[in-house]
Write a protein that binds this DNA or RNA. Sequence first.
DNA 1: TTGAAAGCGCTAACAC
DNA 2: GTGTTAGCGCTTTCAA
Lengths: 352, 352
Amino acid sequence: MPDQSRHFDDITIFDVAKEAGVSYSTVSRVLNNKTYVSADKRERVLRAMAQLGYVANIQARSLAGGRTNIVGLLVRGLNNTYIGEIMKGIDNELAQAHYDLMLYTTHRRKTKESAYVTKLTRNVVDGLLLVLPRNADAYIETLQRRHFPHVLVDHEGISHNILVPSVEATNRKGAYEATSYLLQLGHQRIGFITGKLEMGSAQHRLEGYKAALQDHGLPLDPDLVREGDFLQPQGYTCTQELLALPDPPTAIFASNDFSAFGAMEAVRDQNLHIPQDISIIGFDDIPQAAHVHPPLTTVRQPLEEMGRAAARLLLKYISLPEAPVERIELPTELIIRGSCRPPHHLTSKGEP
Amino acid sequence: MPDQSRHFDDITIFDVAKEAGVSYSTVSRVLNNKTYVSADKRERVLRAMAQLGYVANIQARSLAGGRTNIVGLLVRGLNNTYIGEIMKGIDNELAQAHYDLMLYTTHRRKTKESAYVTKLTRNVVDGLLLVLPRNADAYIETLQRRHFPHVLVDHEGISHNILVPSVEATNRKGAYEATSYLLQLGHQRIGFITGKLEMGSAQHRLEGYKAALQDHGLPLDPDLVREGDFLQPQGYTCTQELLALPDPPTAIFASNDFSAFGAMEAVRDQNLHIPQDISIIGFDDIPQAAHVHPPLTTVRQPLEEMGRAAARLLLKYISLPEAPVERIELPTELIIRGSCRPPHHLTSKGEP
DNA sequence: TTGAAAGCGCTAACAC
DNA sequence: GTGTTAGCGCTTTCAA
């Protein structure tokens, strides 16, 4: 591969200015269309730009204090479908606004967090979208202090007192509904596999579960609640424990679909059948959920829409720095498929 | 949200220079450690940088002609798990090299392609990774002409004559093996659902299928080959057509897992059973493949590893522009799960 | 309304 | 080895 010649046929505003017969600050003006430029000159500049195929140089623009039209997305890793769905929404929204996306993954960095944020904010991006676990407060504080445009996705922020721009799903409500559904089906003993409890969403889902039990007059049996981590293997283990209980649950509510898959595996490995012997319900509705057997009943989280909303909000902060802090909650939805039915003792024997 | 003050506590090399008591080009030198700097001064500079929390400004560096340590990834969209797997590999590899990732999606842009490439190459990134369909030759030509570091993933490039840096899987071989497997199981009529034929990988898989038939002395029945597009709905439709044939196939080979899912759906909707009545085999081995029922037998494509290899190759071109053009082929692997068995007439009736 | 000029932070000759 | 200097392409005062 021969030498890379970066500045190959680079057209600068200087070239455009010459072509259009104006000064090059005039070109800059039409580029940013802030100040008024006479219609005539603007016209000439535009034509010259088109003719020469001018493409703005982001670095220069940024260095000089302008916008880059790039938004940063900070995630822990790319391990799951979950983040893919969110990204899809973000990307679509950004595309419409002619913004580009810069992806940062944190999973491997040992860097001091606030220094890392410095790097992000000083480099390239006009704003930052964050999909992070609960303990990432250092990031957020730095961002807040710097008044750097940012929006959290699926994260409640530092504390309940400080309002941080964010987009979430109705996790509590979703879990409440899922639990109620199981209750209505006649289940009395419902196992619960938590998510990674350092995540706000995991906490909220647990709360929803508890609230539903309480509202239905059922006591909380601590044995039925197992601490998971949103991952399949732990879902498997928790379910094994649950099934080994003297009085095992007739239904299991997993805090996310991956855990639910683990649960399904564990159930099958015990030669039990879903939903005949035990009902399973998940959370998220990732693409796989519809494909497993039986199809998983789950609480749909509007991930793509959350991404869109977050991007939209961030763009607002970028263009209107004074815009008020918003916290957006998007509704979850119970998706009933085939992994739940009334418990054994309520079912007529002959059913297929 | 109050005003964004971008240059908040920005420490420049100038500050570092002052702190270390050296000239600021010396700081630049240790930053890029190209030329030699006396151990003593280097030490002082390093200490000053740490103390001040210096973070390099990418824009400035880039503007001045240096590296940005950012690699661009150009994809059509984020619709599928497929791209997620590749990204995972890329990201991991890049992280190790302290490179960041910039994501570009093309699906929506009407821009003249070569102008778009200009934008990409002139902006921010040191090199470009491309996951694109076959007809994206304009991009590639521009890149080649500019000698801008780039690597294609899962794409053969412009033509067979021009060697383009790329990383692929052994699509032909993988399809050959899958077909052979079905043949060995005793299937004589094997339906084939192609991918989007504008993609090189789709062509290669079709070739592998044909080659296997030929090598086993079987004629190619055009009725058995249906043009799909790598998407589930089309997989469904193709399978319906296949099943409606006077002499329907006993096995179907779908060019990717999504199509295979569509095929499974169609089979089920006909009240046929997999694999008892008909065998299904896919390609890719996306995460869902193991979860469907029955688990899908498929050809594993090492997507993550392909991402890693591509990133590695690109980094090589970035640091060694003269490195020879490489085309890397990574092996596919037949993953036997539960969706295939010998055809009906070969199976003893009593089997479960 | 428009042009001139001063940087933004950094790299890379160029001298010493 | 190390300091000096000239830009990289652009935005933004400041005059005119």
